[in-house]
Design a binder for these strands. Structure first.
Lengths: 230, 230
DNA sequence: GGACCTTAAGTTGTTCAACAATCAATTTGA
DNA sequence: TCAAATTGATTGTTGAACAACTTAAGGTCC
């Protein structure tokens, strides 16, 4: 009699109402349905989401750990306010993880097809003018790059950082400026990888991240100036 | 009239009963008070910790996210069972984060004194024969290395990985074999850093991690063989 | 005798209701 | 006008209840 060693566990697909609701609220937050810094009332949000206050509290713990919400004791949770320091930190993490992941990648890794899918999906979404879908596809591309490492911890950590970054992107207007110049770059990086030119692909990705960071930071600085002036 | 922008929030020090209890349970798990894979009954553990079942559930969420506990739906949570694959992954993460952190470090960073404190603490604990304290000090040394980056995300991520690693260490007997050969190495790395020889310090740390990984993995393999036979 | 179904006990998942603790705003008082 | 006290609302925590599920035991049928 052999006992099943480990019950399969994928933290992404919803197990139970709490994580299911967490996925729903996470999508809402990333989509910008709440203003940054907005306080989330437990009673009211629990009613809106049709879950109990206890379950919503578990959801809050989840998303607070992910950096999408912030928790002030006895004052409840509110949507995180992205900062330039935070964006800078996230890009640093991206560079640290993504570039070596690509440099040491095996060109026939199982994640490569996922990168290809993300590229075509991004192009299709761009043609359809759906910039939110473009953003999702772009992030899926980079998540696939990290998946090249086969490291569960790096993958989870990166997913978290990306979620925070998308929250920051939601603040900026004209998202097409953010993604449009980089879609073709993804395709080039993918080609270099499949051709086995991993070193070339890695340097290309590094410059990609540098430019992307600069674009985002300037847009962010413009936004903060505007917010300060009024 | 200026309103206080953000109330300070450090997730490490206990705010509220849940995080306080989480710290308590985390220490128990790392100290090896539970067998790996042991199921944790909600009712019983809630009674032992003198908290309600709801609060304990929030604690479970916390520690599950940290990788110390695993959650099986409708079957509750159990203590994570460290695996060789997991240890390998953690060392990979350590190399990826620690080595660049040291290479790019500023020799007069605020975290350098913390590294020095950790070194002296480890030596004192070694003299006292308190190997658990040696382990804590050693991990504090490496946490300080990561703190050189000033990246909140990297610091939090690394702390999590280190907690998992200590859980794995708890399985092994003869912990003195794990730490003893490396205490002096810490001191050398610190000296190199303060002397401004960051590149030298980084390569030294890299070889440190390689050797440490090898020691831990062989001890782990011996353990798994013994577990299978006995 | 062994495999399969059924039942039963125990545990987890979720909700509800209550109360204490804390914070924000308003009112009161000098 | 400014400071202190009160009020109102929200969060923090607990306890109990019930449904859903897992597991183990017991019984039935071949």
């Amino acid at each position: 009699m052999t006992k099943a060693p480990i019950p399969p566990m994928n933290p992404m697909d919803p197990r139970g109402l709490a994580e299911e609701t967490a996925a729903r609220l996470r999508a809402d937050v990333i989509a910008g349905h709440f203003r940054p810094g907005q306080r989330l009332s437990e009673m009211r949000l629990a009613a809106d989401l049709s879950v109990s206050r206890n379950t919503l509290r578990e959801v809050f713990r989840l998303l607070t750990r992910e950096g999408l919400l912030v928790h002030a004791p006895n004052r409840g949770v509110s949507v995180a306010v992205p900062s330039m320091a935070g964006v800078l930190d996230i890009y640093r993490v991206r560079r640290l993880i993504e570039v070596p992941a690509l440099a040491q990648a095996w060109p026939r890794h199982a994640a490569v097809p996922r990168m290809a899918e993300a590229v075509t999906e991004a192009i299709a979404a761009q043609a359809a003018g759906d910039w939110r879908r473009v953003g999702s596809a772009n992030m899926a591309f980079h998540a696939a790059i990290v998946a090249l490492t086969d490291s569960p911890r790096l993958i989870a950590f990166f997913a978290q950082a990306v979620a925070e970054l998308r929250l920051a992107f939601g603040l900026l207007d004209s998202p097409e400026q953010l993604y449009a110049p980089f879609l073709h770059e993804n395709s080039i990086i993918l080609d270099l990888l499949t051709a086995g030119e991993t070193a070339e692909a890695a340097t290309r990705l590094a410059s990609y991240l540098d430019r992307s960071e600069r674009v985002v930071m300037t847009a962010f600085a413009r936004l903060e100036n505007g917010a300060l002036r009024g």
